[in-house]
């Protein structure tokens, strides 16, 4: 079973910074970070016309399916996926075995440049997530839901 995923403000800022830098250095249009269960962690760039929730869920499904394929042929996982379109391309990679980094880019960039910059950003992201996981395991870092009452839950369904 995977550990509980938690995101704090401090780490979110750090992650956003890394993604912003990646988008700039790789000349990318959009950079997404998604957890393996399909939940969006961060998105940077021209995201106005993109359904980010769907993108996150489909990316995770895609990674899960290719992961299944990898196991069938005796590989641990395929850590990089590349989808080439007429205009835009998708570069998808697994960071530290737990989160998925998605880069959308067009002809202003190239696969080589994206790969290079993704590698550097992945190392940085990995460190941030390592720290985050340690923080989550500290006892007392309890969930804000520990004190919700039955009434709170009822209110949610009252409309």
């Amino acid at each position: 079973m995977q550990p509980q995923m938690v995101m704090y403000d401090e780490e979110f800022q750090q992650i956003s910074l890394v993604c912003e830098r990646l988008a700039k250095e790789a000349n990318a249009k959009v950079v997404f970070l998604v957890d393996k269960n399909g939940q969006l962690i961060a998105s940077i760039g021209a995201t106005e016309n993109i359904d980010t929730t769907s993108l996150a869920s489909l990316t995770a499904g895609n990674i899960a399916a290719t992961g299944g394929l990898a196991k069938l042929i005796g590989e641990k996982e395929f850590s990089i996926l590349f989808h080439e379109g007429e205009r835009d391309n998708l570069h998808i990679s697994i960071v530290g075995g737990r989160v998925i980094l998605v880069v959308i880019f067009d002809t202003r960039s190239s696969l080589g440049l994206v790969r290079l910059r993704v590698k550097k950003a992945s190392d940085e992201l990995n460190k941030i997530f390592d720290g985050l996981m340690k923080k989550v395991q500290v006892p007392g870092a309890g969930s804000p839901f520990a004190e919700i009452t039955d009434d709170d839950i009822d209110n949610l369904f009252s409309e």
């Binding site: 079973m1 995977q2 550990p3 509980q4 995923m5 938690v6 995101m7 704090y8 403000d9 780490e11 979110f12 800022q13 957890d35 269960n37 939940q39 962690i41 969930s143 804000p144 839901f145």
Partner: peptide, 12 residues
Amino acid sequence: MSFINYSSREIN
């Protein structure tokens, strides 16, 4: 596993 995001104040 649920995902608690303190930054955007969301739980998924």
